[in-house]
Nucleic acid binder design. Structure first.
Length: 864
RNA sequence: GCGGGCGUGGCGAAACGGUAGACGCAGCGGACUCAAAAUCCGCCGUAGCAAUACGUGUCGGUUCGAAUCCGACCGCCCGCACCA
């Protein structure tokens, strides 16, 4: 095809155009958002990245989606906040420091500089004037301030908790750093240690965090369900079982149960290995002590739990049944009872709990069924290997017999609430949550210092607000294992702010999830120096209207942020409870994997392909050796199936990468990165360029104008709806359809006016997705200003409706014909037109149909 | 074990309960070219010359009509997991 527009270059040159338009946007400062703009606000946010060194394709996908929303909403007249920052504290910086002898701070900021440049080369419409990094003292000093506020409000506590301790590296390990019971780095057997740690009392908000999930109607159902399960509310009864003989100063054991209805099926009591009573009894019984230690060892290996045998130790103690003082039950220490949940003690009802049944069968404790499933003969109902945990009618249960499980629950609860044992009610209703308080202490250097000073006389003393921030020391050495803050005496040893005596700083730093629990609030006024937030700004902008990120944050990050926002409200730093009104979780970018004959992973860049469908084969570019094509998996360094965004942007341009990331797969699903797919996107970039230039030169008589204009406005309406619903793959398809229509109209007889109108709409439709190409085309069409600032075109509703519509005609549910009728034809007219069809008459052979169903505008179905 | 989701061409996928496969990728045939790339035209679920028949994991049900709703089963994916 010859170039229809002699003044335009034949090919669109992304390498030339992209930096040029990025510069134009930056010069015009059109993405810098004022807080006092009168237009309605819209806050789009993508989860901010960890500055690992380079962006990956997952970032490209995530930020491309967010940018589509931001640019679209801007065109729709919203004042859009679309900021970017860095989740900059974390372990990798310390690892780099150990391996490469670099300063964690220098390493982090170098990575930020690289990645900022990469993001800028994507042409994202970000307000860079609001950029923040969580490792900046100007950020973390406010976090320290809020820690102190929360402490004052009673939302922070300090207590001992078990941690994974690596005895070789002298360090605490996160659960995911423990592999098969060994430290991931040292390979040493991990020990369980008790350390004093700081906790955020997220459990204070358990009920609210659970209840408010119902109002998050723009969150994926899946994420809400995951959080609901994580919070794990259950309603039950705390019941005290009196010991027949007091032991170690105790006269009763408190048990938590959600099934008091099964109390007459009880066969034993079991307490956790960590239960205080177990510890007390073990003091003078070495065999119990060794049993407890054995339980702790099993506790570390997660996989083992599933297969672990139920083990118990008979204490010899007995308790009285709360509903029958004459009935005595043995007390065991058991490995399957968790100290962290409920009271750390359970009553065992073997017939109706699988764990209890396994335990009872092993120790010959028997079982008595007390709940009979509806419709079964109670006399014949027995339990052997499988416990019955469903509903039914009570049997073998004295005064409860015949009741439903629900009625029996109430009857037992009501009775035991009234009874008194040693001056206290025997039982109390209790709501129990699975959610635990959030331990935020990390024995690490590269994190936000906890602003506390420990004084032998005064205990833990808050650092005065005027002394904030507690800055991390810049010069640190990692040549010894452990936390360098503990060895940095100049930093550590300070006078007590209260009494002035020698004291020492808290050397733990905060979990990096704290940093990411409020950054979205900080973005609303990041320039503030004396407060974490500006109440007017934060209340104006929050909640985030659209938050976009990976499903891997479904629980921790998103739950912590919901908690932290509530805590900030209690401390007066914001007036909102929910940080994210709309949430979207995007899928991963996946790629084929490749292995050479030796079984080593080979990166895609070193491979060439031969043959097509069915016979596709891979060879190594240099050696020519055959390569095995493996499974399609998440891009990862270890499997070398990564494609570097820089390489793609350098060879195809950012618009091509963005377009491909948005096409094909629905955004919540994984997308497969393929070379063919990128090339297809690159071809479309050139096609748009040719079409727009051809439209600018159109010379037709206008016969094709109406159908072209209809196609353009259909696409306009469709893309608008699809962007609102984040269905980017459908946006892409609609744009292709319009491009096809424009192509056809140009080959036919479109007038220049109609062609340029349609081309203009096409350009505006692609502008949120391929912003650089759109600017270049906008200019080629002779439009003024930047398309990035142009208002979204109005749909001409009249162009969306057809004067005549063609309906499918079904006979007995199978399509047999089409009938064309005026748009406003009523059912009678449609029926008459249908019955007059030749194809219909042939089938009817003179008979009348038994029934005629006309769905206006949809379909006609004849039943014969 | 508990909870949730998903099964549609060679592939990624579309489809208010209403014409299954839009749109793209791959493939095939052709045009242009000395040739290649790029571009353009056409074909592209299965069987059949065709009319047509059959087709959304399997089996049943509801409905005038089911990929879509209901039940059972098969397969895959994800989350939680000794939570009393």
């Amino acid at each position: 095809m010859t170039n229809p527009n002699p003044t335009a270059p034949e090919r669109y040159n992304a390498k030339d155009a992209e930096p040029r338009w990025q510069e134009a946007w930056a010069q015009a400062r059109i993405f810098e958002t004022p807080n006092d703009d009168p237009r309605p606000k819209y806050y789009v946010l993508e989860m901010f990245p960890y500055p690992s060194g380079r962006i990956h394709m997952g970032h490209v996908r995530n930020y491309a989606m967010g940018d589509v929303v931001a640019r679209y909403k801007r065109a729709k007249g919203f004042n859009v906040l679309h900021p970017m920052g860095w989740d900059a504290f974390g372990l990798p910086a310390e690892n780099a420091a150990m391996e490469r002898k670099v300063n964690p701070r220098d390493w982090t900021y170098a990575n930020i500089a690289t990645m900022r440049g990469q993001l800028q080369s994507m042409g994202l419409s970000l307000d860079w004037s609001r950029e923040i990094a969580t490792c900046d003292p100007d950020y973390y000093k406010h976090q320290q301030r809020m820690f102190l506020d929360f402490l004052e409000k009673g939302l922070v506590t300090r207590r001992t908790a078990k941690v994974n301790w690596d005895p070789v590296d002298h360090t605490v390990l996160a659960n995911e750093q423990v592999i098969d019971g060994r430290g991931w780095r040292s390979g040493a057997l991990v020990e369980s240690r008790e350390l004093t740690q700081w906790f955020f009392k997220i459990t204070d908000f358990a009920e609210d965090l659970l209840g408010a999930l119902d109002g998050l109607d723009r969150w994926p159902e899946k994420v809400r369900l995951m959080q609901k399960n994580w919070i794990g509310k259950s309603e039950g009864l705390e019941v005290r079982f009196a010991l027949t003989r007091p032991a170690k100063g105790q006269d009763a054991v408190k048990v938590y149960t959600t099934r008091p209805d099964t109390l007459f099926g009880a066969k034993f009591l079991a307490i956790a290995a960590d239960h205080p009573l177990a510890a007390a009894l073990a003091a003078d019984r070495p065999e119990l002590q060794s049993f407890i230690e054995a339980c702790r060892r099993i506790g570390t290996a997660q996989e083992a739990i599933d297969t672990a045998e139920k083990l118990g130790f008979d204490t010899g103690l007995t308790v009285r049944h709360p509903l029958d003082p004459a009935w005595e039950l043995p007390v065991y220490v058991a490995n399957f009872v968790l100290m962290e949940y409920g009271t750390g003690a359970v009553f065992g009802c073997p017939a109706h709990d699988q764990r209890d049944l396994d335990f009872a069968n092993k120790y010959g404790l028997g079982n008595t069924p007390v709940v009979c499933p509806e419709g079964q003969d109670p006399a014949a109902f027995v339990v052997t290997d499988t416990a019955y945990d469903g509903d039914g009618r009570l049997i073998n249960s004295r005064f409860l017999d015949g009741m439903t499980t629900h009625e029996a629950f109430e009857a037992v609860a009501n009775r035991l609430e009234q009874e008194v044992l040693a001056g206290e009610a025997v039982a109390a209703r209790k709501v129990q949550f699975r959610l635990r308080d959030w331990g935020v202490s990390r024995q690490r250097y590269w994190g936000c210092p906890i602003p506390i000073i420990h004084c032998d006389a005064c205990g833990p003393v808050p650092v005065p607000v005027a002394d904030l921030p507690v800055r991390l020391p810049d010069e640190v050495s990692f040549d010894q294992p452990g936390n360098p803050l503990e060895r940095d005496r100049a930093w550590r040893d300070v006078p007590c702010p209260r009494c002035g005596q020698a004291a020492r700083r808290e050397t733990d730093t905060m979990d990096t999830f704290v940093d990411s629990s409020w950054y979205f609030a900080r973005f609303t006024a990041p320039w503030l120096t004396d407060a974490p937030t500006d109440r007017r700004a934060v209340d104006h902008w929050l909640a985030v209207d659209q938050y976009i990120g990976g499903i891997e944050h479904a629980i921790l990050h998103l739950l912590y942020a919901r908690f932290f926002t509530r805590a900030m409200r209690e401390a007066g730093w914001s007036g909102v409870a929910e940080p994210f009104a709309g949430l979207f979780t995007q899928g991963m970018v996946v790629h084929e994997t490749y292995k050479d004959e030796a079984g080593a992973w080979v990166p895609p860049a070193e491979i060439r392909f031969e043959g097509g469908e069915g016979g596709r084969q891979a060879f190594h570019v240099k050696t020519g050796a055959p390569i095995a094509i493996g499974a399609i998996e998440k891009m990862s360094k270890s499997k070398k199936n990564v494609v570097d965004p820089d390489d793609i942007i350098a060879s195809y341009g950012a618009d091509t990468a963005r377009w491909f990331m948005l096409s094909d797969s629905p955004p919540e699903r994984d997308v497969i990165w393929t070379e063919e797919g990128v090339q297809g996107a690159a071809r479309f970039v050139q096609r748009v360029w040719r079409l727009v230039n051809a439209a600018a030169q159109a010379t037709g008589d206008g016969a094709a104008d109406l159908s072209l204009r209809k196609a353009a406005h259909r696409a306009l309406a469709g893309v608008g709806e699809d962007v609102e619903r984040l269905r980017f793959n459908r946006c892409v398809a609609q744009v292709y359809t319009l491009a096809n229509a424009l192509d056809e109209a140009l080959r036919g007889t479109a007038s220049r006016a109609a062609a340029t109108e349609a081309a203009g709409i096409l350009v505006q439709l692609i502008a949120p997705m391929m912003p650089h190409l759109a600017e270049e085309c906008w200019q080629a069409l002779g439009r003024s200003g930047l398309v990035a600032q142009a208002p979204w075109p109005e749909v001409e509703a009249a162009l969306l409706v057809e004067d005549e519509i063609t309906l499918p005609v079904q006979i007995n549910g199978k399509k047999r014909a089409d009938v064309t009728v005026p748009r406003d034809a009523d059912a009678k007219a449609v029926e008459a037109a249908t019955l007059a069809l030749e194809a219909v008459q042939k089938v009817l052979e003179g008979r009348a149909p038994r029934k005629v169903i006309v769905v206006p505008g949809r379909i006609v179905n004849l039943v014969v």
